[in-house]
């Protein structure tokens, strides 16, 4: 359980998070969304103790982050940064990903097996012996992901995981996230990628200017045009389409591609039968 109580945080004198209350239960899948500078990254840096609240507190599995260390928290909270270059330092991709497992004292045999598995899963199998620095931005990002996910932390926090990823890689990533989540792991992603969120179907926490603007199921939040625009997002394409067609009797809350397809086909069938 990740519990945030009355969290305020200031860099120097500027308060960037105001009185945040948030409970994320074990096994939940949450997307934190909001404009550039809303405080999303600042919030998640509290989850593994990298930042400590100026006021209020953050509890991970019941323990305040003030009473723990980043090293200890990192065993249960795996945080992947937005910029992979902040966390890559080994000579090869394999060494990079193996680092945390070796640190945790796993036997070499297990280390090899798990590293191989995660590299294959994230489509990095061919790069095991390459230097992370030789890879493309998207690939380095996946190496950073692999190096955190390989130790299977209980809570997984990903800052903008889809940046620089093509459609296929995003689908792969989504499948993997869903798989980790269905094993009971908590997944928190920070993202701007509205269409990715629609495909993932998580709970959405909308953050704006350091405060929580809304919190609820992805479809009710992302189809609320006013809320979405307040947070500098753009509603999902299907949602914009269906709400513009509301005058023709379509449900403006439809947000999913396949639901839109059935609703439209139903109507188009009626049209065809009336005109034959």
């Amino acid at each position: 359980m990740i519990e945030v109580r009355g969290l305020c945080f200031a860099y120097d004198d500027v308060e960037v998070l105001h009185n945040i209350d948030l409970r994320i239960s074990d096994g939940e899948f949450v997307a934190v969304m909001g404009e550039n500078g809303a405080g999303k990254t600042t919030l998640i840096k509290h989850f593994n103790g990298l930042l400590k609240p100026s006021r209020g507190e953050v509890l991970i599995d019941g323990v305040s982050t003030r009473e723990s260390t980043v090293a200890n928290l990192s065993r249960v909270v795996g945080l992947v940064f937005q910029n992979p270059d902040h966390q890559l330092f080994s000579e090869t991709v394999f060494e990079e990903v193996a680092f945390s497992l070796r640190n945790l004292g796993y036997p070499e045999e297990t280390v090899r097996r798990r590293v191989r598995f995660i590299l294959e899963t994230l489509d990095l199998g061919g790069y095991a012996e390459e230097s992370p620095l030789m890879l493309s931005g998207g690939e380095r990002k996946r190496v950073a992901l692999a190096s955190v996910l390989v130790s299977e932390p209980k809570h997984i926090i990903l800052d903008e995981p889809t940046i620089g990823q093509d459609y296929q890689q995003k689908e792969r990533l989504r499948n993997f996230i869903v798989q980790m989540n269905s094993q009971g792991r908590t997944v928190v992603i920070v993202t701007h990628d509205v269409e990715f969120v629609v495909d993932c179907k998580p709970r959405v926490v909308l953050l704006s200017r350091g405060s929580i603007l809304a919190d609820g199921p992805y479809d009710s939040i992302l189809s609320d045009r006013i809320l979405v625009e307040k947070a500098s997002l753009i509603p999902p394409q299907i949602s914009i389409l269906m709400s513009s067609l509301a005058g023709l009797g379509f449900n403006p809350k439809i947000i999913d591609l396949y639901q839109a397809r059935s609703a439209l086909e139903k109507r188009l069938c009626e049209y065809v039968s009336e005109h034959v």
């Binding site: 269409e195 629609v198 389409l241 839109a260 439209l264 188009l268």
Partner: peptide, 21 residues
């Protein structure tokens, strides 16, 4: 277009076309 993330709106019309519309 395998692996290319075309806009959802374009996908929708391609799906409808596949289904005969």
């Amino acid at each position: 277009l395998i692996g290319v993330g075309i806009p959802k709106i374009s996908m929708l019309f391609n799906l409808l076309r596949q289904d005969g519309f």
